[in-house]
Design a protein around this nucleic acid. Structure first.
Lengths: 243, 243
DNA sequence: AAGCTGAACATACGTTGTACAGATAGGTGT
DNA sequence: ACACCTATCTGTACAACGTATGTTCAGCTT
């Protein structure tokens, strides 16, 4: 296969024309973990989550599939690294304003990072491992909450709620019953329901349809923040939830 | 294979001893969509989501894998049906109390149904299709919100927020950085961070660890409901979110 | 120049979802 | 009673996936 290069005396690149045609002088930059992770992230951003296969990624990097395994334990670790790269975009350095202002800015930045890579964000919340940037976000959030006066127990609850809401938000693309579309009728999953059986949905259907309404995330965030303000103002109502 | 039973004249069960050993009189009930979906759901509940393969399900039903495809288009449709079966457990019939009480009961029932099948719930929010029971839940929720005085646009936003929060809640099992565990060190994903670099997390770590704290869902729900009450009381502050 | 090391490769295995073609059984019309 | 049709089930097979394994090879150290 590589007969020529294995017999240097006969076609020595340095004596011939200075170029060995069997050698690839224009080879891409060396395979490194960061480069793999970056390419994987942009691949997912462009072609969707299902397009991320080790083979496709290797092709993109002009490398054999197994070469990736020298830098990444398995696909699972790769995704973990991708997630952490995404979370690196979150701005955790805001220190102006009171705790509520900072918290709002932090969660929004968090949301925007996820939204910018919403394909990857779909698997994010399912992940268990958390990387350094995830830790940093968590640290800042919890610190703000403690500073605001929440107890450690409450701060952890609040963090979870914010985390769940923000991460969960990305999971839903179009999760709206598209009753009008032909897809359901032709697949015949379910008997179509007449509008009079679902009057409320019908009444708001124009607002439900389509992709996420801009500002919808903020709407829910403000609900939560308003709730937080009340909790801080009246801590005795903390356990007021009936049943 | 079944040579004997194909020659009824020679070993007729009714004339012999009343039993033909080659024949299976205890054969399971016929393969139907509901039975497939039910067994699939309990399989996922018991053995986890990854255990749901068409082969494993077929084995469970004592049937060849391809037999399933007579009743179910593909695995995707199967999961859709499983989700709808899960959502059938949600109690949508509560009509006592004011809108807030009913809404709380509804969302809680919703949450409990998901929690009862948390393995399946992990893929739930990623799903786009929505079945009749999902529609029913949606209808009740939106109706309550309209009745409470929310505009159609706001009602749809609120529905989404509640939906996202509840569905998203199930996605997170243990999504806590288990810094102490040996797993991270031995896999070496990330350089371990010393506690002094993450003081806030360290301060609340005892509350973060472990599975979901009971009542944590209700905590976030009450935050949202409190926010809703404010919105209803002061509708002019609806668009008060800065930026 | 010899030898070592780590990176890249080729090959292959097991598991998955599912297409396809034939076997089979239960009900129906005669 | 018998033939036939149709819905159902089976066996076989294939493509795509993640990845275990063994080998090749370039480049550095000595």
């Amino acid at each position: 296969m590589n007969d020529q290069s294995s017999v240097p005396g006969r076609s020595d690149p340095t004596t011939w024309v200075g170029v060995d045609p069997s050698k690839d002088y224009t080879r891409p930059p060396p395979l490194t973990r960061p480069r793999i992770v970056r390419t994987a992230l942009s691949l997912v951003d462009e072609k969707g989550l299902a397009a991320l296969t080790m083979r496709a990624l290797a092709t993109e990097l002009e490398v054999s599939p197994m070469a990736l395994y020298n830098h990444v334990r398995d696909k699972d670790e790769l995704v973990d690294l991708m997630v952490d790269l995404m979370l690196a975009e979150v701005d955790t350095s805001v220190t102006e304003g009171d705790w509520l202002t900072q918290l709002r800015a932090l969660v929004r930045s968090y949301h925007q990072a996820l939204a910018a890579h919403h394909e990857l964000a779909r698997v994010y919340s399912v992940r268990v491992r958390i990387g350094p940037h995830g830790l940093l976000i968590m640290e800042r959030t919890v610190a703000l909450l403690l500073e605001a006066g929440f107890s450690p127990a409450e701060a952890s609850d609040v963090f979870f709620v914010l985390f769940i809401y923000t991460a969960g938000f990305q999971q839903i693309g179009d999760v709206v019953p598209r009753r009008d579309s032909a897809t359901r009728e032709e697949t015949g999953y379910y008997p179509p329901l007449p509008p009079q059986q679902i009057p409320a949905i019908t009444a708001v259907s124009s607002h439900l349809n389509g992709p996420h309404r801009p500002g919808r995330f903020d709407y829910g965030l403000e609900l939560l923040l308003a709730g937080l303000q009340i909790k801080i103002a009246q801590p005795e109502k903390a356990a007021a939830a009936p049943q």
